[in-house]
């Protein structure tokens, strides 16, 4: 499902309303006497910090019922920025209180109240570690799996101890129903973490897959062909992605997102993975018969032929994978619509699916524009990156009637998306997918 502007605004208002729930609960019913603005503002920042942190569990939890129409890469970008905001709130909460009235420094003093001081210190240190390890995971030399485990544990710990802090301070916690509401709000958030880390893998256990083929591709890429075992498989739309876990158990921290390259008409799932790190390098050594667990499908990077005259597909390198799924689906359903593919690569030998794309041209209305930054000497096609000039030469005149799909490195996405917007293509017609989202 993709969102219209009205739906997007609804989701943003829902997020804002939810972020204000703990603050609203605190301010409901009978209230203690008011204090200085600085003190009250410090308290409000604390409520807001707890709420925003709790909502992070919904944003990042890959729930199709929350914001899926924005695209999960956009949601993750939003998650990252809101995480920094949560860090600022949680640090500003005691800072503002102490600045307004230095007596609040005693909240950190274990001699005054040990449990209160310990929970406060744990939350403060915990969120600094949570955000720092997320922003600079590689600097801290944390593997993706170790970071993912740490991220889950810290999130649960911070929300749990944050709730403990609210209950222990108890300034806005009376009568009892308010405390119950705080427990319910934060408890729901903590459940969502448990759901994505425990319940979801447990559900995946019923739908195993096995790798039946490992195929080498150009440009250090490998295609894994997966077959469902004992179930009909996954229903996906061309262009969507999934998370894959390899090995005997789906309860693994090693879970990675990849676009599905195969057509939805194909009962097998094909993933084409470029060597970009430890995990993606290891897939070429996998043996047929390796068990796999697939979570998904996710994403709104798919073409709905009824909504446009045709599709313009822009891919950089291995960004071709979801685009390939869209093309294979169009070929399989004998789609008469025009498709224009801009495909950027370094060298001709790097072009993944080169022969298959050429063969497709005989079966569908497909124009292919290869752009090579290091072309062979007699190269007749476009040279360099996919630029505005290249698009000028090959885009149709009625560009506003087409749907646009861009997948590749961030600079390509930014350049093409800005260019299309400048040409008057509606934002709703432009779909992007970043493959470096985690």
């Amino acid at each position: 499902m993709k969102y219209s502007l009205a739906q997007s605004i609804c989701w943003i208002l829902t997020f804002l309303a939810l972020a204000l729930v703990p603050l609203g609960v605190g301010m409901a019913g009978s209230l203690p006497p008011g204090r200085d603005f600085g003190v009250e503002f410090g308290v409000m920042l604390g409520f807001l910090g707890l709420a925003v942190l709790s909502l992070q569990c919904v944003i990042s939890g890959r729930f199709n019922w929350f914001g899926a129409g924005f695209g999960f890469d956009n949601l993750l970008e939003f998650h990252k920025l809101i995480g920094i905001f949560a860090l600022i709130l949680v640090l500003a909460h005691p800072a503002m209180l102490i600045a307004a009235n230095p007596v609040f420094i005693a909240y950190f003093d274990p001699r005054e109240n040990a449990p209160r001081a310990i929970t406060l210190s744990l939350v403060t240190i915990g969120i600094v570690v949570l955000v720092a390890t997320s922003l600079w995971r590689k600097f801290f030399k944390l593997s993706y799996e170790a970071w993912r485990a740490l991220h889950g544990v810290l999130t649960l710990g911070i929300i749990f101890f944050g709730l403990g802090h609210v209950v222990m301070v108890d300034h806005y916690g009376e009568p009892l129903w308010k405390k119950a509401a705080f427990v319910l709000f934060t408890g729901a958030a903590m459940y969502l973490v448990v759901h994505s880390r425990v319940v979801r893998p447990w559900l995946m256990k019923r739908k195993p897959y096995t790798i039946i083929e490992v195929r080498e591709e150009p440009n250090n890429a490998t295609t894994l062909v997966l077959e469902p075992v004992g179930h009909p498989g996954m229903k996906h739309r061309a262009g969507q992605f999934l998370w894959i876990t390899l090995g005997k158990s789906p309860f693994s921290m090693q879970q990675h997102p990849y676009s599905i390259a195969s057509s939805p008409q194909n009962p097998k799932i094909e993933l084409t993975i470029k060597d970009l790190g430890d995990f993606s390098r290891s897939v070429r050594d996998l043996a047929p018969g390796t068990p796999a667990w697939l979570e998904g499908p996710y994403g709104c990077f798919y073409h709905d032929p009824g909504t446009a005259k045709g599709a313009v597909l822009v891919a950089g390198g291995v960004g071709i994978t979801p685009v390939m799924s869209i093309l294979r689906a169009a070929r399989d359903r004998r789609d008469p619509q025009p498709y224009i593919l801009f495909f950027g690569n370094t060298a001709w030998t790097d072009v993944i699916f080169r022969e298959e794309i050429e063969a497709m041209r005989a079966h569908m209305n497909l124009k292919v524009v290869h752009c090579l930054t290091a072309p062979p000497p007699d190269w007749p096609g476009e040279q360099g990156y996919i630029t505005k000039d290249v698009m000028d030469r090959h885009l149709p005149n009625d560009i506003e009637n087409y749907a646009y799909f861009i997948c590749g490195p961030r600079p390509l996405l930014d350049l093409v998306e800005q260019d299309l917007r400048a040409r008057g293509v509606p934002a709703a017609s432009i779909h992007t997918e970043r493959f470096d989202m985690v």
Partner: peptide, 30 residues
């Protein structure tokens, strides 16, 4: 379509929430 706007959206939401908290704090301190 939103990836160019994610950071602005996060900033706008953060500002709205901060202003809302400041308004509530101002009301409590009257």
């Amino acid at each position: 379509m939103l990836h160019l706007y994610s950071r602005y959206l996060a900033l706008a939401i953060s500002m709205i929430l901060l202003i809302a908290s400041a308004v509530v704090a101002a009301w409590r301190s009257i």
